[in-house]
Write a protein that binds this DNA or RNA. Structure first.
Length: 98
DNA sequence: AACTAGACGCCTC
DNA sequence: GAGGCGTCTAGTT
């Protein structure tokens, strides 16, 4: 299984209304230090429909980047029911640990 | 070989 | 205590 494939699998597990961090994803797939590669893989994700990239945020709580625009990402997250304060997300509340 | 949607630590204010 | 800068890693293109 490719790294990207693992990433997609992990991201797909994120329930609606919850978010996960890049390091969480990296940890789940077995490469806790590949947080950066996770973002890279998501950017080039071949299946943007089944992979909710917008539910993946930084460990800082910031949204991070997004192919369609970070602003759009935040907007989507808000629609999911996630509250963002000062451009930051409550990982304590919405952070999904699986 | 160079880039990236990150993470961590250290330094400064 | 908060913010900014610099550094390192892992994987993809």
């Amino acid at each position: 299984m490719n790294f990207s494939e693992k990433v997609f699998k992990a991201v797909k597990r994120i329930p609606k209304g919850s978010v996960s961090t890049y390091s969480e994803i990296a940890e789940i797939i077995g490469n806790p230090d590949a947080s950066r590669a996770v973002g890279n893989a998501l950017n080039k994700n071949p299946t943007p429909i089944i992979v909710p990239c917008h539910r993946v945020v930084r460990s800082d709580g910031k949204a991070g980047g997004f192919a369609k625009g970070t602003k759009k990402k935040i907007e989507l997250l808000r629609k999911e029911g996630i509250e963002i304060k000062n451009n930051k997300i409550d990982l304590e509340k919405f952070g999904c640990k699986f």
